Lab assay of single mutants.
Amino acid sequence: ETEYTFDDKREADRAAKEAQNNGLRVHVTKDGNRWKVRID
C-alpha cells in the first residue's frame, strides 16, 4: 500500500488513472485542501 499527496486534483486524478490502468486498486480522498491517492 502506497500513499501520495497532491495539491492539485488534476495531478491526483492522473496518478489514480495511471494506477488503475496498471490494474491496481486506487482510493482518492480529500484531506483539507490537498488530495491523497492510496494505492493497494
Rank of each mutant, 00 (worst) to 15 (best):
K9E: 11
L24W: 12
K36A: 05
G32F: 01
E11S: 12
I39Q: 02
N33V: 04
N21K: 13
D40L: 15
K9F: 14
N22K: 14
F6M: 02
T5W: 15
F6T: 03
L24I: 05
D13N: 07
D8W: 05
K17C: 12
R14S: 07
E11Y: 05
A16Y: 06
K9G: 04
K17P: 01
K36I: 15
D40W: 15
V26C: 03
V26R: 02
A15C: 15
A12N: 00
Q20V: 11
G23S: 03
N22V: 08
H27I: 14
R38Q: 07
R14I: 10
N21I: 11
A15R: 08
D13E: 12
R10T: 11
H27Y: 10
G23C: 12
N33F: 06
D31P: 01
G23N: 05
Q20W: 11
D8T: 15
R10G: 13
R14A: 12
N22E: 08
R14V: 07
F6Y: 09
K36M: 07
K36L: 12
V28I: 12
Q20T: 11
N21P: 01
D40K: 10
N22M: 14
V26W: 03
I39M: 04
G23T: 02
T29V: 13
K17E: 11
A15G: 01
T5Q: 06
E18A: 11
E1D: 11
D8K: 08
N22D: 06
R25Q: 09
E18D: 09
D8V: 06
T2A: 11
T2V: 14
H27M: 12
E3R: 05
A15K: 11
T29M: 12
R25L: 08
R34K: 11
V37C: 08
R34P: 00
E11K: 07
R34Y: 09
Y4P: 03
R25M: 08
Y4T: 06
K36W: 04
D40H: 13
D13W: 15
F6G: 01
H27L: 12
A16V: 11
W35T: 00
N21D: 13
D13P: 01
A16M: 07
R38L: 10
V37G: 00
R34D: 03
R14H: 09
Q20H: 10
R14T: 07
A16P: 01
G32M: 02
G32E: 04
V28A: 02
R38N: 06
A15Q: 05
K17H: 10
I39P: 02
G32R: 02
D31W: 06
N33Y: 05
A15N: 03
E1V: 15
E3K: 04
K30A: 09
V28E: 01
R14F: 09
R25A: 08
D13F: 15
I39H: 02
N33L: 07
Q20M: 14
G32N: 04
G32L: 02
A12I: 01
N33M: 05
W35R: 00
K9P: 10
D7M: 11
V28N: 01
G32K: 04
A15S: 04
F6W: 02
E11F: 05
V28H: 00
L24E: 03
N22A: 14
A12D: 01
H27F: 11
N33G: 09
R10E: 14
D40Y: 15
E3S: 08
H27R: 12
V37Y: 00
A19V: 03
G32P: 00
N33D: 13
D7E: 11
T5N: 05
K9C: 12
A16D: 01
K9I: 09
G23V: 02
K9A: 07
E11M: 10
D8M: 05
N33W: 05
D7G: 07
A15P: 01
E11H: 07
I39L: 06
A16C: 11
A12K: 01
A19H: 08
D7L: 11
E18N: 10
E11W: 06
Q20P: 01
R34A: 06
T5R: 05
Y4E: 05
R10D: 14
G23L: 03
R10C: 15
K9N: 03
I39K: 01
W35M: 00
K30T: 07
V26D: 00
R10A: 14
Y4G: 03
D13R: 08
